[in-house]
Amino acid sequence: MASGSPEPTLRLDIFLWHARLAKTRSAAQAICEGGRLRLDGRRIERAHCPVRVGMVMAFPLNGVVRILRVEALPTRRGPPAEARTLYTPLEPTRSSPVDESDSAA
């Protein structure tokens, strides 16, 4: 086997649907085409963008920003427990408000 073989990829909208981050494929396409999803820091506006293992995606979902690392590419839309193994949730970095202090006045 050649060492230069390309890494396996999957369409972004199909990944979101298989990972159960969107209820329908059209909802997954809307997330992708809304211009608010970032994949490895790049803004994505197309549903057919390729996803690879190790990529990090960030997007708003139900009022919360989700940041996920892709751990595996799915072969089917399985049960929720199987879907959760496809990604690892990452915590967003939080910045403290300017007027917040550690000591009481």
Rank of each mutant, 00 (worst) to 15 (best):
L37S: 01
G34N: 14
D40P: 01
T24G: 12
A30I: 11
T24I: 04
S26K: 15
D40F: 09
K23R: 14
G41S: 07
A22Q: 14
G41I: 12
A28G: 13
A28L: 10
I44N: 06
A22R: 11
R11M: 02
R42E: 10
R36K: 15
D13Q: 01
A22T: 14
L12V: 03
R46D: 07
L21M: 15
T24R: 13
I31L: 15
F15C: 02
R46A: 15
L12R: 00
I14V: 15
A28E: 04
W17D: 03
L39T: 00
A27F: 00
A30L: 13
A30Y: 03
E45Q: 14
A28C: 13
L12Q: 02
L39R: 06
L21N: 12
R43C: 10
A47P: 05
R42Q: 14
L37G: 00
F15T: 00
L21Q: 12
I14R: 15
A27G: 08
R25L: 11
G41E: 13
G41D: 10
G41V: 06
R46K: 15
A28W: 05
T9A: 02
K23E: 11
T24K: 04
A30P: 03
R46L: 06
L37F: 07
R11Y: 06
R46P: 04
R46N: 05
G34E: 13
D40R: 03
E33H: 04
R42S: 15
T24Q: 01
R36I: 08
Q29T: 09
L10A: 10
R11H: 11
E33L: 03
R11S: 10
R38M: 11
A28K: 02
Q29I: 09
R43D: 11
A30E: 12
F15R: 00
I44H: 07
L21R: 12
T24F: 02
S26E: 13
L37D: 05
G41K: 01
I14P: 00
L12E: 03
G41N: 11
A27S: 14
E45A: 08
I14A: 12
A30K: 15
I31Y: 08
D13W: 03
R38H: 10
G35A: 08
L16H: 05
R11D: 06
L10R: 09
L16T: 05
G35W: 08
A19E: 01
R38L: 15
K23H: 09
A47N: 03
A47Y: 09
A28Y: 03
R43A: 15
G34H: 07
R20N: 07
T9S: 07
E33Y: 02
W17Q: 01
R36Y: 04
A22W: 05
R43M: 11
L12W: 02
R38C: 09
I44Q: 06
I44D: 08
Q29P: 02
Q29F: 05
L16V: 11
A22L: 08
R20V: 07
L39Y: 01
R25H: 00
L12D: 01
A30G: 08
T24C: 10
A19P: 00
L39G: 00
D13P: 02
I31E: 06
Q29V: 06
R38Y: 11
R43L: 12
L37N: 00
T9L: 00
T9M: 00
A19M: 01
A22P: 10
G34T: 13
R11Q: 07
I14K: 15
